[in-house]
Simulated assay, not measured.
Amino acid sequence: MALDRWIALVLLGVCLAYGYAAWFTMDSGLAPFMRRNPIWPSTFPKVLSVLGIVASLIILLGLEKGEEKELDIDYRRLGDYHLGQALMLLALMVAYALCLRPLGFIFSTSAFLILGSFILGERKWHIMVPIALFATLVVWYLVQQVLGIYLRPLPGFIGG
C-alpha cells in the first residue's frame, strides 16, 4: 500500500475517534435549554469528522487518482529532501507554543514569523521584520479588540 493510503488510514482512525466523541459524548453535558438550539457546540466537530471520514475514504479507495503518475515524494530517499528545514520548523512550532504565555503574544509570534522565514531561506531583514511585526499586531488587535479574547501582549515580567 502506498504512503498516502497509510496516512489516509491513520487519519480515518483519528476521524472515527473524533466523530465518536462528537456524536456520542460531547452533547451529554448540555443544559436543557441548549438542547433546543439548532446549532450545538458539537455541530462543527460533527461536520469536521464526517468530512474527514469522506476524504480519507476517497484516498483509501483510490477515487482521487486519474491515471498513474510518478510519486511526488519517494519515502526511500528522504535524505534528498529538505528534512532539516522541516524538523527545525517543527521544533520552532514547539518552542512557540511553550513561549507564548511566558513571553507574551507579540514577542513570541513576531519571533516565530521572523525565525520561520529565516529557516525557509528569506534573508531580506528590512522586509521580513516589518511584515512580521505588522502581521502580529494586526492579528493581536483583531483577536483582542474585535473578538474580545484576551491575549497577553507582553511578557509577564514587564507587566503583560
Rank of each mutant, 00 (worst) to 15 (best):
M26G: 03
D27G: 08
D27C: 00
D27L: 00
S28P: 01
G29L: 12
G29F: 15
A31I: 05
A31Q: 15
A31S: 12
A31V: 06
A31L: 14
P32V: 14
F33A: 14
M34S: 10
R35P: 05
R35E: 00
R36A: 12
P38M: 11
I39P: 01
F44E: 08
F44I: 15
F44V: 15
P45N: 11
P45Q: 14
L48Q: 10
V50Q: 01
L51K: 00
G52R: 08
A55Q: 04
S56R: 05
S56Q: 03
L57P: 05
L57W: 05
L57M: 10
I58R: 08
I58M: 14
I58A: 13
L60I: 14
L60Q: 07
L60R: 09
L61Y: 04
G62Q: 12
G62I: 15
E64F: 13
E64G: 15
G66T: 09
E67M: 06
E67L: 09
E68A: 14
E70Q: 13
L71R: 15
D72Y: 15
D72E: 07
I73E: 13
Y75Q: 04
Y75R: 11
D80Q: 11
Y81R: 07
Y81P: 10
H82N: 14
L83G: 08
L83F: 02
Q85W: 12
Q85H: 12
A86H: 01
L87M: 07
L87Y: 03
M88S: 08
M88D: 00
L89F: 11
A91M: 08
L92G: 04
L92Y: 08
L92R: 06
M93D: 02
A95C: 11
Y96V: 01
Y96I: 01
A97M: 12
L98H: 03
L98A: 11
C99W: 10
C99F: 13
C99L: 15
R101M: 05
L103D: 10
L103Y: 05
G104L: 06
F105E: 02
I106F: 02
F107A: 12
S108V: 02
T109W: 01
T109A: 08
T109I: 08
S110E: 09
A111D: 11
F112R: 01
F112C: 04
L113D: 05
I114A: 03
I114N: 01
L115R: 00
G116W: 06
G116H: 01
G116P: 06
S117I: 00
I119N: 06
L120K: 14
L120W: 11
G121N: 10
G121R: 07
E122K: 13
E122M: 07
E122Y: 09
R123Y: 11
W125H: 13
W125C: 01
H126N: 10
M128T: 07
V129C: 04
V129P: 10
V129Q: 09
A135N: 03
T136V: 00
T136W: 03
T136Y: 02
T136L: 08
L137P: 11
V138C: 02
V139F: 10
V139H: 03
V139Q: 06
V139G: 01
W140D: 00
L142F: 03
L142W: 00
V143F: 04
V143M: 02
Q144M: 06
L147R: 10
G148L: 01
I149K: 09
I149G: 06
L151V: 13
L151K: 07
P153L: 04
L154D: 03
L154V: 05
